[in-house]
Design a protein around this nucleic acid. Structure first.
Length: 464
RNA sequence: GGUCCCAUCGUCUAGUGGUUAGGACGCUGGCCUCUCACGCCGGAAGCCGGGGUUCAACUCCCCGUGGGACUACCA
């Protein structure tokens, strides 16, 4: 089995393309086939190297490696031209000199009159030679039926009379997509073409080209589209659509992969899959036929799940960049690891985690005005002093040891734990929301805790 | 307009002629609790409509309706 992912380098790898790549990759890995990456850059105007780079980066981030390529379609024009010539020689293609404006006018007119806006065949039988500005059209059969055998959608048949004589070589000598894709897929020995179902209507034309060229027709699998919340094709206005934007927003690749694979594919009631399970279980037969709406909330849930399930060391590696970006000193790895352990159950994204953990790294705790107004008051200052005084004599400076210490202290002082805990929280983190106060104290360590308490007490003195 | 595809809770989906129509996200009531989370227990929420076929249709067929894709010298 040989498959391929063939994006055009006219932008970043988007969510839809990523899922197509993922389906191809999973299917190929499952059957130990060869996965090929081909960049479809025959649009000389819109293709950029930067886009190619971005697509490769996104594939790597998602963990979708390829076995051959990347091949560049534009580097294969000689082969394409040779095949165009072959089609002309066999009478399966012809030169056409109709002007684009003229064609456009005819199209509009036909549409206005309620007729099919297909090429009228003006040059089909004129036997024109190549000339400046001429294009090459494929001569499609006028009668009969072409049926697409689709691995996902079943058999789809088209009346050939509905099909256009499409242009296979532009005036600039470059092949068009529908032609180049056939030549390349055939010559690269692609056996399974898995792509978005926006290509189904092109497929019968492509099949005719395969046949005219004497190639074996591959198997097709058209995966349904991904829609936005308004059921329109997913686009920027629905939020981030670039794969790498999700990395920047603090998503883990496993979460995106898991989310994407469940968009259109399912395996009973299972929601969480490892890559190994996916490679073992994925099948095109279990891919649904209908389009799916992209649901950011569920992706967020999965991300949270993976943040909690990630191996500690990998989570550290993943979060580090977000703190470094904020200019924090993260050289004390054991300390960073402890902070992450505190934060991991309360973060849906790495960005959220980095944000929620800034206090671990701040030399000077930034007090939230509202929190300070409520808890950093003379009324509560005594709690802080008592905590600071009690810490040095603590037998067990651990989560449990601190908890019993604080509970005992609350009782001793005739108050509830929550008042001491919240006051402490503001003194140590600057906020009223943070990981468990005992966890924070353990991670910060005695020195920092006492230092921060002293600063808070001083702050209260200065403020009142 | 034409061609093609699709249709189970708001969303992702299981289902393959006989089920109290299951799970997940989200929403929501409660428990837990030093805050926020995590976790646990519970709840509301769905077979697009109409005809057939059948003893029996979410399931099969047809017609509507709705949504989507394509209809480029883009891919």
């Amino acid at each position: 089995m040989r498959t391929r992912f063939a994006p055009s380098p006219t932008g970043f790898l988007h969510i839809g393309g990523a899922r197509t790549a993922l389906f191809n990759w999973l299917y190929t890995r499952r059957y130990a086939g060869t996965f090929i990456l081909r960049i479809e850059d025959t649009d000389q105007v819109r293709s950029t190297e930067e886009s190619t780079r971005a697509i490769l980066d996104a594939m790597a981030w998602l963990g979708l490696n390829w076995d051959e390529g990347p091949y560049f379609q534009a580097e294969r024009v000689n082969i394409h031209r040779e095949m165009v010539q072959k089609l002309i020689d066999t009478g399966n293609a012809y030169y056409c000199t109709c002007a684009p404006e003229e064609l456009e006018a005819k199209r509009k007119k036909a549409l206005a009159e309620g007729r099919k806006p297909k090429y009228d065949g003006t040059c089909r039988d004129r036997g024109l030679p190549r000339s400046s500005g001429s294009v090459v059209r494929f001569r499609g059969p006028e009668v009969g039926v072409t049926v697409v055998h689709d691995l996902i959608k079943g058999n789809i048949s088209f009346n050939n009379e509905e099909l256009d004589d499409l242009i296979i070589e532009r005036a600039d000598g470059y092949p068009t997509y529908n032609f180049a894709v056939v030549v390349d897929d055939a010559q690269m020995g692609i056996t399974h073409v898995i792509r978005g179902d926006d290509h189904v209507n092109n497929t019968p034309k492509q099949i005719q080209i395969y046949e005219a060229l004497g190639y074996e027709v591959p198997l097709f699998g058209h995966v349904p589209m991904i829609l936005g919340s308004d059921r329109a094709r997913l686009s920027k206005r629905h939020g981030a659509t670039s794969v790498m934007a999700y990395q920047e927003m603090g998503y883990l690749p496993e979460a995106l992969v898991n989310y994407l694979v469940r968009l259109g594919w399912s395996h009973g009631d299972q929601e969480i899959f490892t890559m190994e399970e996916l490679v073992r279980e994925f099948s095109l037969e279990a891919v649904g036929k209908s389009a799916a709406v992209f649901n950011p909330e569920k992706l967020l849930w999965l991300n949270q799940h993976y943040i909690m399930a990630y191996p500690a060391e990998r989570l550290v590696e993943s979060v580090l960049p977000f703190w470094e970006k904020r200019g924090f000193d993260v050289s004390d790895r054991p300390f960073v690891a402890k902070a992450i352990a505190d934060l991991r159950t309360r973060s849906k994204t790495l960005v959220e985690m980095a944000e929620g953990g800034v206090f671990y790294f701040q030399e000077e705790v930034a007090y939230d005005p509202e929190a300070a107004a409520k808890f950093l008051t003379p009324e509560y200052a005594g709690h802080l002093v008592a905590v600071a005084e009690g810490i040095p004599g603590l037998a067990e400076y651990t989560k449990d040891g601190l908890e019993s210490f604080l509970r005992a202290l609350a009782e001793e002082r005739g108050t509830k734990l929550k008042w001491i805990a919240q006051t402490l929280r503001v003194a140590l983190t600057g906020k009223t929301v943070s990981p468990g106060i005992d966890e924070v104290m353990v991670t910060l360590g005695k020195e920092r805790v006492i230092g921060r308490i002293q600063k808070a007490v001083a702050w209260i003195g200065a403020a009142s």
